[in-house]
């Protein structure tokens, strides 16, 4: 039985559903020392802003039960250095491979987002732009994701200038994911990716101190998978555009859980910190699971969750 892992996220044709989540694989270089990047259909780079950013003070991470909290604060070299130094390296890394480059962008305000988005049009080899409108670790970073209005304004402004496929990355830290998802769709997003990290906190009561310098941070890892599944399921019911599932995915079964809930593809995040070779393992296991379940085409599983009888 030949197994077909290919999926489409709108106009993006992917040879398998596995992308990296922004902020969890740098720009691909370090990961390439562990595994063939061909096991990934896309590298989503760490968020790039117009100006360089230093990021948050140390400590920036702490472990939690089956998860971790980060308050990294989006450090990055800024657009100019990115296009001069990092993007050329990424092009080298994926040359001859089916792996695509997705640019994740972030800004302090509307202008900074559109400034970067406009310039992304002129760079070759960027397959899509993902809007980080939901990083909890930056002042003002949540404004675009917590209200449908804010989200719609930003996506609309970026849509106006961007010619590439546009992915809006949504936050789970909202009252109604469905409302925000609909707003992003209405504003012209080609697809959605969710969830970003869940706002959380961890402390050492003996020291009377929070464990990350920022106080609060974003919870990630297997601990957030049920929240992510729920959000993806709700978003998929609310919109017609494709959805990329993110949140605590560690195994092939996790991937399939997201896909039956409606995700067309997934992003791997925290698992890469523990297992830099996870893409290969998950891709192989996906084929195995599908063989066992006698499913030939992975895409045939998307959104096939059934209502429970009697419910």
């Amino acid at each position: 039985m030949s197994i077909d892992l290919s999926v489409n996220v709108g106009s993006l044709a992917l040879h398998n559903p596995l992308m990296t989540a922004s902020g969890c694989s740098g720009y691909g270089k370090e990961l390439a020392a562990y595994d063939d990047l061909s096991w990934l259909s896309a590298i989503v780079g760490k968020s790039i802003s117009r100006e360089p950013r230093l990021g948050n003070p140390y400590p920036r991470t702490c472990e939690t039960p089956s998860g971790m909290i980060n308050a990294i604060g989006l450090p990055n070299e800024g657009w100019e250095s990115y296009t001069r130094n990092t993007l050329p390296l990424m092009r080298e890394l994926v040359r001859g491979k089916p792996t695509k480059i997705v640019l994740n962008i972030v800004g302090h305000d509307l202008d900074e987002y559109t400034w970067v988005a406009e310039r992304a049009n002129d760079e070759s080899d960027i397959a899509a732009v993902e809007l980080n409108l939901s990083c909890p670790n930056v002042a003002g970073g949540l404004q675009f994701s917590t209200t449908a209005d804010g989200c719609e304004k930003l996506v609309k402004a970026v849509r106006k200038v961007l010619k590439l496929p546009l992915i809006a990355k949504l936050s789970p830290n909202v009252t109604s994911v469905a409302d925000i998802a609909r707003a992003a769709e209405a504003a012209g997003a080609d697809s959605l990716s969710l969830i970003n990290t869940v706002l959380g906190m961890n402390v050492d009561w003996r020291k009377r101190k929070a464990l990350v310098a920022n106080g609060m941070g974003g919870l990630s890892g297997p601990a957030i998978k049920p929240i992510a599944l729920r959000c993806v399921y709700e978003a998929c019911k609310a919109v017609k555009i494709p959805v990329i599932g993110i949140g605590g995915i560690c195994t092939a079964d996790d991937v399939l859980d997201f896909m039956v809930c409606g995700a067309s593809a997934v992003q791997l995040g925290t698992v890469l910190f523990v297992e830099p070779d996870a893409p290969q393992r998950i891709a192989r296991d996906l084929k195995e699971r599908m063989r066992e379940a006698k499913v030939e085409k992975l895409s045939s599983l998307i959104g096939t969750l059934r209502a429970r009888e009697g419910a």
């Binding site: 370090e30 990021g55 140390y58 400590p59 920036r60 702490c62 910190f273």
Partner: peptide
């Protein structure tokens, strides 16, 4: 001995000023 999540350069957690 910085607190780190990945150890191989991708998480940006273990920074030293």
């Amino acid at each position: 001995e910085s607190v780190m999540a990945c150890g191989y350069g991708v998480c940006n957690g273990c920074v030293c000023a």
